[in-house]
């Protein structure tokens, strides 16, 4: 484990009350000021992983891990008040859904400041000024009007900016963004991603960004983790992973990204089959039924390649590497 790691997950497993395993043996690390992208299909456990890190899982899901530390603190052993203070002061979260994340009946200024006022010994006025300043920093021109507005009076892009400002209120060192651009149109998507990029580079906040959008991760994230069926199948520096993907699933994901220069008449390519929802609690390769490259070596427990900057969960890759 790196000493300056902002996030260090080892062997995270999330189970539902029914006993089903949603996420199994996930290990991730993130250094200070880094930006990590988590990619994968719907149902691959990206959001569950992110929410486990912030202990925001719904009550019927249980997370366990060999080690789960954020900003050097062991999340799993925290008491409830400690956990609240930790959430309120040290990490930020930006949601996918911009419609219901802000309370429709409460003015923006109150929602921006209420959490901050809980944990900072300061005046309401200072909190409001801080919120106003942050709204301007996230690119809202008429911050005074937005402060006095109800969320329903704002557009989706504006609401997401407010959400980001809200996450920044307590000066977090880590922000986890759960598909922050999903519900936005593409112009606003671009603006929001640029905003995250500047938060990362200028405010030096480490960011975990969950996204379906591989191009976005490739452009803005230092590292990438590809998840499949509740497991991390490949991690590494994003340039390395995107230029020479090793895991067959990563390759498949990259091959289905539509390109501008492709023949408009041609059918878009796809990965046949579905992400398995059950039976995730196994040591075998979960991608095998859909894998185009699977060989004799792939039966039985899957082997993992653990390089300095690369992790690949694939027996075939291990075999080829002679490991």
């Amino acid at each position: 484990m790196k000493q300056d790691a902002v996030l260090n997950i080892e062997g995270l497993t999330v189970r539902a009350a029914s006993g089903d395993v949603l996420v199994r043996d996930v290990s991730l690390t993130l250094g200070a000021q880094e930006c990590l992208g988590i990619a994968g299909e719907s149902g691959s456990g990206k959001t569950v992983t992110a929410k486990s890190v912030l202990q925001l899982l719904p009550p019927d899901l249980r997370a366990s891990a060999r080690s789960l530390s954020v900003l050097g603190k062991d999340i799993l052993s925290m008491t409830e008040p400690e956990r609240r203070r930790f959430l309120g002061c040290e990490v930020g979260f930006v949601p996918q859904n911009t419609v219901a994340y802000l309370h429709p009946l409460i003015k923006v200024k109150r929602q921006l400041t209420d959490g901050y006022l809980c944990y900072h010994d300061t005046t309401k006025r200072e909190a409001l000024e801080r919120a106003h300043g942050l709204l301007e920093q996230v690119g809202i021109r008429d911050a005074s009007r937005v402060m006095e507005s109800y969320p329903g009076e704002l557009s989706g892009g504006m609401r997401q900016r407010v959400n980001i400002a809200m996450a920044l209120m307590s000066d977090p060192k880590l922000i986890i963004a759960d598909e922050p651009t999903t519900a936005l149109d593409c112009v606003v998507q671009q603006q929001v991603v640029e905003l995250f990029h500047s938060i990362n580079t200028q405010r030096h906040v480490a960011i975990v960004m969950i996204s379906h959008d591989l191009n976005l991760i490739r452009r803005y994230c230092h590292k990438v983790a590809v998840m499949y069926a509740g497991q991390v199948v490949e991690t590494g520096d994003s340039q390395a992973v995107f230029t020479s993907p090793k895991h067959p699933y990563t390759k498949a994901l990259l091959s289905v990204v539509p390109r501008v220069d492709q023949d408009p008449a041609a059918r878009l390519s796809e990965i046949p089959g579905y992400v398995p929802e059950t039976g995730r609690d196994t040591d075998e390769c979960l991608f095998r039924p859909r894998c185009a490259e699977c060989t004799q070596a792939c039966s039985g427990a899957v082997r993992c390649l653990r390089g300095a900057d690369r992790f690949v969960r694939c027996s075939k890759v291990c075999e080829e590497a002679g490991a």
């Binding site: 912030l54 925001l56 609240r84 203070r85 930790f86 959430l87 309120g88 002061c89 930020g92 979260f93 949601p95 859904n97 419609v99 219901a100 994340y101 802000l102 309370h103 429709p104 009946l105 409460i106 929602q111 209420d114 959490g115 901050y116 809980c118 944990y119 959400n163 809200m166 996450a167 209120m169």
Partner: peptide, 26 residues
């Protein structure tokens, strides 16, 4: 069950404040 309860949790609001100010309000 609404997402704004998640937002109250993320901000670290104590449960009573979250219930009174957020849930009851709506």
């Amino acid at each position: 069950d609404q997402d704004f309860m998640l937002s109250a949790r993320v901000k670290g609001l104590p449960p009573r404040a979250a219930i009174v100010r957020y849930a009851l309000r709506s």
